[in-house]
Amino acid sequence: MNVIKLEHVSKTFGRETDGVHAVRDVTIHIAPGEIFGIIGYSGAGKSTLVRCINLLERPTAGTVTVDGQELTRMPERELRQARKKISMIFQLFNLMPSRTVEQNVAFPLKGSGLSREETRRKVLELLELVGLPDKAEAYPSQLSGGQKQRVAIARALASDPKVLLCDEATSALDPQTTQSILRLIKDINQKTGITVVVITHEMAVVKEICHRVAVMDKGRVVEEGSVFEVFSNPQQPVTRSFIATTSNLGKIEELIAANDPIVAVKPGEIVARLNYGQSNVSEAAISEVSRRFNVDVSIIFSNTEILDGQPLGGLVALISGDKVGEAIGYLSEKNVMVEVLKRG
């Protein structure tokens, strides 16, 4: 049972022959309650793809099914009804400047059959939920970026949607505010079980909240899987380059190329990069090989994180001793990926 099913979705702007192929044959299934990330550089087609989910962009081919309803077959009127259960938040918030926070949050409730009091109560509950109970009378121009996005989230939740689409929702925010907004989305996801689709170009966002991720490049989904799978064992260059943006393990190559004294090796020493690709390894492996094979391991860079509850990352170290070779062999057996970058 998937709440969102995109089957062979393509979107071409302009003519088939010389138009822009923004999305090419994308198939994605998203389960209820999931936080699904779509990451890609700008121009990869991710914003167009997310607009194909609520049909703000009508796909030129393929089908879109949300909550059991095939949107691509619906007439406009029904589609508008269906959209009320698919909310969206935006990079630039898109709040109505002439309306107060309360009126903004109440915007989607018009025509919902709620009385004035019921609407007001619901709006205040939502403002409470997003942490802005005292801003009901304020205008958007009086709020900070983070507060505006909170209001936008409250507005998005007003129609009790099944799905929340986040289009670069944190890209205009500073890192701290980004964190707080992501925490809020995660919270809401846990409390309400709403399915969330997150479009971003920031690795950090995917790491912070997503369960599964699809990597987009030139309109195609080139890699898809659990966040841990995809980032522990990237298959595509574009995925690797995203990982590199949040890791410092790549810097070692520059140091080696520049012959930096930090990486000067004596005979018998090696510089190696160790990557923990699997959940059962941890930093303890280092002290283990060090004891067992009597080698010295001096760490130059280290970068590990907890992704989806599992450690991911690795380190670059200078390893010296008589049994370096055996130590490497042992680590490989333990599913640590070892790359020898320089030998003395």
Binding site: R83, F90, S98
Partner: peptide
């Protein structure tokens, strides 16, 4: 702003609702 129109469309507003509630109001 085009963004407001897009937000209203995403909320399921019809073109005439967008005229009244977004364009004329804003």
């Amino acid at each position: 702003s085009e963004g407001l129109v897009e937000a209203a469309q995403a909320m399921g507003c019809s073109p005439w609702e967008i005229v009244w509630r977004v364009y004329l109001k804003e």
